[in-house]
Write a protein that binds this DNA or RNA. Structure first.
Lengths: 201, 201
DNA sequence: GACTTATCGTACTGTCCGGTACGGTACGTT
DNA sequence: AACGTACCGTACCGGACAGTACGATAAGTC
């Protein structure tokens, strides 16, 4: 294997990602990818087998990158509300990012043909956020800072409140909220969540 | 115009709906629709202009039908909690129905090309539910049965709680919850919502 | 420098599909 | 019965595109 191989792979994936996100997966031809990143169709088949192989790699790297960007600092010196506000803002911002929205659209479209891809994306994407929040809530509960019986269910609720209408609307191409709206919505959702928690379950 | 024309139109739409929902819109050829409902391609073009014309009609009739199915009885003799539970159950059930899920998938997929369709669907589908709930909450608030400042925001919150993870997962092809789970989830969400409302805003 | 192997460019194949053309046929009207 | 119109069936057009074939060329290895 040549040393340039890995670089070429990344170039192909970068080009494919950009085109898939911009136009959609079925709407992007292999020739367009080649045109964007140079090289020959043969190379593309050598590395990825077929078109779906490219998509798998795009989704894999896309989710990986998102996970690395979404860094939620769990610092016990910071008050609970503030930490949740920050988490909420990050969550809304991530959900409304073109990166995630485009992946959602593609995976939803392909889920009819490729259930495996859908499950993969679900576990690496949405369920990852759920997992992070559940762990955090669990920890807070153990420290007595929060009264919940079921951390996973509580996480589902907070995430649902955070999503609100944004996600559905963004998914259908409506404009994303501003940074200010995201902050405000996150704060309101967290407040509402904590009030509900003070008694619930 | 012949009397059989309307019948034929409906037959075409029924066939197209079934195929679009089962296979997706781009994956369904006009020949397949003809094969299913009989007739000639020419007729199809006579009635609908082009393929997208058929889709528009499918979505229009689909949302119309859903609105007529989703009948929320506002009976002031019934306690608030019970009414909200019923609403919540209906909402979850509708969201997880193949009818709505398939429309969502198609519209999301097409929203890249046809923003108008997306907005049409959004207003007739999701926003219709939001509107119904907002009106109801407003009425309850005016009667002093509920303390909220912003009925629309409150509706967004309850709907978010009701959706929980179900919608995202169903959208990606995961199995829908059972009737029991729907009932239970609706009750829990409503309970949590009402607790949050007792102080919030 | 000789050899190997990855890559390139281009052309090609097979297929699918939206949309059109057109001759024939049933239907409804007068 | 005669006429016009809607409808049917089939064939066709043009274009797009995944995937393949293959000879030419560059890059790395010895």
């Amino acid at each position: 294997m040549r040393p340039s191989t890995l670089l070429k792979r990344q170039k192909i994936i970068a080009a494919a990602t950009q085109l898939f996100f911009k136009q959609g997966y079925p709407e992007t031809s292999l020739d367009q990818i080649i045109e964007q990143c140079g090289g020959s169709k043969q190379t593309l088949y050598r590395y990825f087998g077929d078109k779906k192989g490219i998509l798998n790699e795009v989704i894999t790297q896309g989710t990986e990158e998102m996970k690395s960007v979404f860094q939620f600092q769990n610092d016990s010196d910071i008050p609970l509300t503030k930490q949740l506000n920050e988490f909420g803002y990050l969550y809304i911002k991530t959900l409304c990012s073109p990166q995630l929205l485009n992946m959602y659209r593609i995976v939803i479209t392909e889920s009819r043909r490729d259930q495996e891809l859908a499950e993969f994306f679900l576990s690496r994407g949405p369920q990852h956020f759920h997992h992070l929040l559940t762990e955090f809530l669990l920890q807070q509960a153990e420290q007595g800072k929060l009264h919940i019986n079921n951390a996973s269910l509580a996480a589902t609720r907070l995430l649902g409140l955070l999503r609100g209408d944004f996600f559905q609307q963004a998914m259908l191409g409506m404009p994303s909220p501003s940074e200010q709206e995201m902050h405000k919505s996150a704060q309101q959702a967290v407040k509402f969540f904590l009030q509900g928690c003070s008694i619930a379950d």
